[in-house]
Structure formats: C-alpha cells, structure tokens
C-alpha cells in the first residue's frame, strides 16, 4: 500500500512495541510508521490500547519491550528530547480554570522555555488563527467548552512542535465546534505538522489521511479511509469499524489487509 505520504520522512516509528500491566497486555507488538505532515487517526473502542500507546510515545510510560522513535528520538532513552518536540492535548483539556486564557498560554509557553518576545510573536500567529482574541483575557472557567478546546490546542502547540498528539480532543464538544476544530487540525497538517489523533467519533475518521483500527492492543486495520472502506465494500467508517472488530473477535479469523502482526 503506497500512500503519497510515504515518501515523506517517518516521524513516529514503532517496532514490536509492547506494554504489559501485570498479566494484561495493553499494547501488543505494535508496528507503526507515521509520516511528516500526516493526520494519523487512531481508532478503537475504549480499552483497546490507544491511550497507552500515546502515553508511551509522549514519554510518560516506558514500553515493556520493543522499540519506538518519535521525531528521531528513542522513547526508551530520550524522553526529555521527545517532550520538547511534541505537543499533547488530552480529552480533559488540562487548563487551569482559575487562570485567564492568556495566563494559561503564558504558563505553558514558559514551561517550554519560550521568552516573552517569542511568545508575543507566537500569540500574534495563534490568536487570529484560533480566533481567541475575544476570550483572551477571560477566566478559563467562564468560557464555553468549544472555546476551552481551542485554548487547549493553543496551549499544546504554543511551542510550535513538529508532532501533535491529540487524545480524544473533541470529547464533550458540540458538532459545530467539532467540525471547526477539524478545520484547525487540517491547517496544522498543511503547515507541515504531524497530527496523531485518537477519537471514537467514526465520522471524524473521514478527515484523517490514514487511520489505524486498534482492538485488544493490536492494530487490525491500517490505511486511508477510502481504501479501507473500498476493500471491505462498506459505505461508512462506522460500518467498517464494527465489521473489523467483529471479525477480529471471532476466533480463527485472520486480520484484514494492512495489519501488522
């Protein structure tokens, strides 16, 4: 399967990446290549191993076995360098409610060692793009969910990272805001950033360049949304996802093409 993106450099690579918690295997021998500028969708039911994978890639968890590199840095040994190269936004929009939007951004910028002059330049870029001007000096607790989501994205990208990990970034947000948010993700990718995004809204998967479907710690399908649907002869990602998971859970059934086993 050759996607146009494959010619671009690989920025996230894992080989046989495995993480066990006691007897439970959360991530099972994962092989993955994500390319620069790609929107890579990571699909799966709750507990499929998505969040564990992201935590390993962000340097929060160590793998039990296997290897992985993010932005060229080994997840086993260079987690501090990885942290400087990535942005991370979780479904909890980890903002300080009792600080204003600007103060939140200033804080996260400070953590990345961004001085005030560079921050001012960065805000000049981010604020119009995310249309935050109106809310900039409001208390974060007082702004609506959809705006909090944008602020969280701004905070996660304030240091202009090459790779952005978005862990269910649209949870609890209305459909209009969700759609607008995907527009922002698209812009990020267009500007050369790699976006690694998990979601369980199947309609959102359509916006991804490539998706992988995870079940029980393994990837059971990988490819562009159009290709995967065509291969299975199905209309929507929703149907595709349910079919894939059902097949995977039937004993003896082999995983579908593009899988990594």
């Amino acid at each position: 399967m050759l996607e146009p993106e494959t010619e671009r450099p690989v920025v996230v690579r894992t080989r046989a990446l495995t993480r066990k918690f006691g007897a439970f295997t959360a991530v099972d021998a994962l092989d993955l290549d994500v390319h620069e500028g790609e929107i890579f969708g990571f699909l799966g039911a709750n507990g499929a191993g998505k969040t564990t994978t992201i935590k390993i890639l962000c340097g929060l968890l160590l793998p039990t076995s296997g290897t992985g590199t993010v932005a060229g840095f080994d997840v086993l040994t260079r987690s501090e360098d990885i942290k400087r190269s990535i942005g991370y936004m979780s479904q909890r929009f980890s903002l300080y409610d009792d600080l204003s939007v600007r103060e939140n951004l200033e804080f996260y910028a400070g953590l990345y060692g961004i001085g005030s002059r560079r921050l001012a330049r960065r805000l000049d870029e981010l604020v119009p793009r995310l249309q935050l001007a109106e809310h900039l000096d409001k208390l974060t607790a007082s702004i609506p969910m959809g705006w909090k989501q944008r602020v969280a994205l701004a905070a996660a990208t304030v240091h202009d990272p090459a790779i952005v990990f978005l862990d269910e970034p649209t949870g609890g947000v209305d459909p209009v805001s969700r759609r607008a948010f995907w527009g922002l993700i698209d812009e990020l990718a267009r500007s050369g950033k790699t976006v690694f995004v998990t979601t369980h809204y199947m309609d959102e998967a359509e916006y991804c360049h490539r998706i992988s479907v995870m079940n029980a710690g393994r990837i059971i399908a990988l490819g562009s949304p159009a290709d995967l649907k065509a291969q299975a002869g199905l209309e929507t990602i929703q149907e595709l996802f349910l079919a894939l998971v059902r097949r995977d859970e039937r004993p003896g059934a082999g995983p579908q093409g593009g899988t990594s086993r």
């Binding site: 009792d98 804080f107 996260y108 910028a109 400070g110 953590l111 990345y112 060692g113 961004i114 001085g115």
Partner: peptide, 17 residues
Amino acid sequence: RKGLLALVAMIRKEFRQ
C-alpha cells in the same frame, strides 16, 4: 536557562492562582 524559565513560569502560575 530553559529550566529556569520553566521554573519561573511555574512560580508565576502558582502566584496567579
């Protein structure tokens, strides 16, 4: 220097809160 900036950001945030 970056570490120091991060520390300053942290302290500033605490005071603001």
